[in-house]
Every structure is written in C-alpha cells, then in structure tokens.
Design a protein around this nucleic acid. Sequence first.
DNA 1: ACCGTTTCGATGCGCTTGCATCGGATCGTA
DNA 2: TACGATCCGATGCAAGCGCATCGAAACGGT
Lengths: 199, 199
Amino acid sequence: MPRQVDHEGRRLRIARAVFDLVAERGLEGATLRDAAARAGVSMGAVQRCFSTKEEMMAFVLEHMNQRVTDRIEEGIAASADPGSAMTMLEHTLAGIVPLDGPSTAEARVWLAFAAQAAVDPRSAGLQRRQYDRLAELVALLVRTARDSGDVRSDVDPEREADALIALTDGLNVQLLFGRFTPEAAREALRHRLHALRAD
Amino acid sequence: MPRQVDHEGRRLRIARAVFDLVAERGLEGATLRDAAARAGVSMGAVQRCFSTKEEMMAFVLEHMNQRVTDRIEEGIAASADPGSAMTMLEHTLAGIVPLDGPSTAEARVWLAFAAQAAVDPRSAGLQRRQYDRLAELVALLVRTARDSGDVRSDVDPEREADALIALTDGLNVQLLFGRFTPEAAREALRHRLHALRAD
DNA sequence: ACCGTTTCGATGCGCTTGCATCGGATCGTA
DNA sequence: TACGATCCGATGCAAGCGCATCGAAACGGT
C-alpha cells in the first residue's frame, strides 16, 4: 500500500480556506485555484478531496452550519441558567447573529449561500433542511417557555419561531450592510423576546 | 447627423432583460451576451448603452428599487383609507414582501444584490442609501401612527422601523427558500403590526 | 533489491467571460 | 447624387474558469 495522507483533515483545511475566500470575495470569488493556494495545497489535492466543485461547496456549507450549531450549544451550556427555556432561546438566536469578527464572516457566507439557494433548487434543499431543524428547535424552546409560564399563553410556538428566525436573518442582513452595530442587533433581539414575556 | 435611436428606452429594455436573468440564474448568470440576447439587441448595443458591466448592474438595481417604490406608493394610494398611517405602514411593508410572481423575482434580485453588497463596499453603499430612505419612511409612519393613538405610546419609531424592516427582509429570505407561502408571510407581518396596536 | 500499484503535484484543454476593435450601413449636406 | 461623419452589430482577444490528464515520486509485497 502506498502512503496514506489525512484526507478528512485535508478536507477540513480546504473547507476553511474556501470559507475565508467566500467571506472575503463572495461565492464566485472562490475558485479552485485560489482555494488550493489559500489552503497551502496543490490544486490536484483539492480535486482529489472533492469530486466536483459543487460537492466542495456543499461540504463548506455543512461545515459552517456545524460550527454554528456547536457555538449555539456551547453558548447554551455556558449560560448562567441553562435549564431555563427562555435563556436557551436567547442564546440560540444570539448565536446566529454575528456579534464579532468570526461570526460576521459566517453571516457573509450564509448570505452568499442564501442567494445561491434562491436560484438553485439543489442548494435550496440543503438550506431548507437546516432551517427546518432550527425552526423545530426554536419552536420547542418557545413552547417549553410558554408551558412553564415564561411567555404569554397566546403565542403560537411554530409561528413565533418562524417570526423570530426571520427577524434574526433580517438583522444579519442589516448588520452586513453596516446599518446596524452588533450591539443594536442584539438589543433588537432582546427587545423582541422581552415582548413575548408573560406580564 | 446620423440616425438617432432611443437610448434611454434601450437602457430600460436591457435593464429589464438583465433583471429577468438575475432573477432566474443569479448575479453571475447575467452575462453581457445573455443580456443582449434576452433583450433582443446586439452585444455592441449593450456596450454602448453602459460603459461597463458594473454601471449596468447599478442601473438595474436602481431601476428595481424605483419599481418597488412605485408599487408601494400605488398600493398606498389604492388602499381603502390612504390617510391612516397604519394602513400606509401595512401597505409599505407588504409591498416589499413578494406576494406574486413578479415580486418574487424582485425578491430574488434583491437577495442577489444583497449578497454582493456584503462583500463589495461600492454596492453596499447603494443598498444602504436605499435602506436609509426606507427606514426613514417607515419610522415616520410609525411615529405618525403612534401620535394619532393607533399604536402604543411606548414604541420607539426608529427602532421599530428597523425591526420591521429586518423582519420583512427575513420573511423574504424564508419565502425564497420555499419555507413560507406568500400568505403566511403576509399573515406574519400583519400579526406583528397588530401587536403594535394600542389596546 | 526490485517492481507494480497507487497517489501526488503540475500542466493542458475547451469554454466562457468582459472588453476592445473594425468594416459596413446610415443619414445630413452640398 | 456623391461625400463624409457617425453609429451600429459582429468579431477578436487576453484572461480566468472547472476539469481531465500525465509523468514522477513514494510505498509494500516478494
């Protein structure tokens, strides 16, 4: 057998490089050559790790979603009162809004993929699945908070979850345009959640 | 003097063609050749109408924003009670959310340009100016509605306007993903506005 | 120690892109 | 009617793209 290299590690390394490129120059700014150069590998290596560019991009998207999920769970675990559904809800949504440099890059990449999903059904499917999972989680949190008396009893968890997610995405866009500061976005989110509270 | 052709009309014609292409295939799917073919003119004509592709795209964006503005004003004028700030507010926001085929195309193009603006400061400037104008209008409507007693007195017009715009943009994204129906989006918007009403 | 097998990095290819260029058609003028 | 200035549409061009291909290098089995 010939020597083995760490394929999975290389995939991650390339994915990170592509992520950076997309965050800086957008989706069409991420070429195979640039990705290879940024990752410090040859172009052939990129081709061997991913059968096609589309697969590479899908991997990058999945990898980013995984990172966001990890950060959300981390934020929930590190919160003062992890058991409270309301706290978990706030951390979940706050984990999506970019509050610092790295997550701003995430938001940029998210927007780039979102634009692609709007015209490419294949890409839309991936995004939609992610959103369905997120909406389920948020709806569950809202329902739990409602049942425990933290939020008003007349809110519909599913509808409210979708509305909250929409608001979060919209805040992301405003942030990327530079019309919002991260603090203002977080404040808007907080304000919205506060309006759900039971009196 | 040689014969004159309708330059401005041709610009509009090409802009409409580019708009359709972007709505169908995204920003990078709009090439000069395809634009010329779709508009039914030669490629040279496109080059003479717009000095560069960037200028053409900026014109397309401006043209679309103008169309949206026109539709909003039209909706306000056609509403049952044009004088009511609350009605105007609802029509303004509803004019942004895509409720039918043509405005879905608008939303697609909007998202495409939004993604570009996230990585291109030049494009971000254009978008930001548009949003500032929209935010001013919405804030004014909210303030008017508040002062006339239609909405609760404890809402901050500027903050609320930004939040409403963010929600609208988020709904647009969800719509494009196919997670929302236009009716559900409109319902969510209505629900949110209803929550602002004075009891 | 040798060789077959497998993986590596580099180069080539066909294609498309935005933009520049050029001959020919067009119209006012004398 | 002949001319010259002007504008039109088609073609050319250099660059960049994704992907295919290829010789060389690196191992394990015998």
